[in-house]
Write a protein that binds this DNA or RNA. Sequence first.
RNA 1: GAGGGUGUAGCUCAGCUGGUAGAGCAACGGCCUUUUAAGCCGUGGGUCCUGGGUUCGAGUCCCAGCACCCUCACCA
Length: 519
Amino acid sequence: MSRRTGLTGYFVMNNLTGEVVLEPLSDLRKQRLEKLNQILEKNRTAYAYQFNQTDFAQHVIDGFDERGEGFDVSLSGRLMSLRRMGKASFGHLMDNTGRIQIYVKTDQVGEDAYELFKLLDIGDVIGITGSVFKTKTGEITVVAKTLELLAKTLRPLPIVKEKIEDDEKVIYDAFKDKELRYRQRYVDLIVNTEVRDLFVKRSKIVSAMRRFLEDKGFIEVETPVLQPLYGGAFARPFVTHHNALDMELYLRIADELYLKRLIVGGFDGVFEIAKDFRNEGMDRDHNPEFTMMELYVAYRDYNYMMDLVEEMIRTLCENVFRTTEFSYQDQVLDFGKPWKRIGFFEAIREASGADCFGKSLNELRSLAEAKGIELEPSANKGNILDALFSAFVEPNLFQPTFILDYPIELSPLAKKHRKTPGLVERFEGFVGGKELCNAFSELNDPMDQRERLEAQAALRAEGDEEAMVIDEDYLRALEFGMPPTAGLGLGIDRLTMLLTDAPSIRDVILFPHMRPENT
RNA sequence: GAGGGUGUAGCUCAGCUGGUAGAGCAACGGCCUUUUAAGCCGUGGGUCCUGGGUUCGAGUCCCAGCACCCUCACCA
């Protein structure tokens, strides 16, 4: 928070302490404010109300061959480069579509407008009208007939100079400090066009997914973010407080239990694309809030869901990217073929040589320890299997793979396997070494579900903070009868990482979580 | 949580075994009406992340802290 105090400094409040201090202005900022004053003397305002642009940079360039020289256009955008030569200047204007060169000279715009132009800085938002021509070096350019300032920048933009050499864009002194880029994403987006492109792709991925699901007849719904009980995943929640009700509420860790209530209610196919919140560690694959797509379909099982995931990802890749092959961290991913399918125990056996199926807790413990896994004394069967899987199998699952038929201990909401006791009908999809999605034939037997949640409650009582809590209303819903149902959760952020070759989840989240800035 | 790395001008970075801070770009002033990393001449610009300590003297060495990055651990 700050308010302007003339030309000597700003009063700035520290967001953490509430302390207000006078922060002196850097010379660069003093110069900008001085320019603003000069502009105001001749121009009334430096912040316009509107501008009617008729064209966009890229369209002007693309349409040049057809429309020819001398075509009149009006454009608005941000001034991104400036080459002044006395009474004439070149620069580049960047708008929503791209960059185009502009040419401003006194005898075209008039002296008043040129005087104003001299006070502009890189980063200023302007509107121009003018006609299109090609310079003698062959660049399509708009020569300005009128020029107005739409918004003055008071802070210097990190200048990124670029040159086209052999059709390759060479960037000099890129704005690349990761901390600044994440904290001031608005600057990152202005200056680093590939960042902007990535988030456009993310948007297209989500809308292609939505279109695919709607075309299948599923409907999009919204369920509570603020929940009196949380469930649907193993995770610690964020806790908040409702003042009027004077009660604790949790930010959801998953949509699952509410969406299945809707299947009970008679919807045959529902999905939700929304934020979940998990109060856990952060790393390159985890942000405390992240976007999940969850889908539930009545009368189907996990076999149907595997086919659907394959079809959905393939269709989405074709529609958005026109390809099913993606380079991810120097390897090639292929979403065009059916995914590899392998059983959970089989995968562990293949990767580690340990045959864990049907073993007792003590047998599992010695198997794991023989393989060099360190275990908490309190580790249960689920923990040990999970540890073995994470250590030996998960890092090597690069090509799209479904791991299926998990031990029942790891999956309290999944239906028992129809053939093999001790397993549930569940699969997880792994791509690029990451867990991308998780699905099961949903447990719809209310008595079985109660027993499994009670087992979770027992774990909780022993100190497992991530074990699930018993949700009586959910059990009541199941007692009204839920059709056989297939359910899926798929991480949108991770999918975006894979399809845009992003190494960190922070690169696909516009405003990733950061510790507070210490100003 | 552990280990490693980074933090210097608006941006990108130099700065040796300790001697009071530098470059390129940007900015400011001057010249320049087809330039494009425009050019030429000139000028200014710093809480060297913060706080302690050692020292005659600290950007540099020591201690503590903060932020970010990487690896590992934890965590579905």
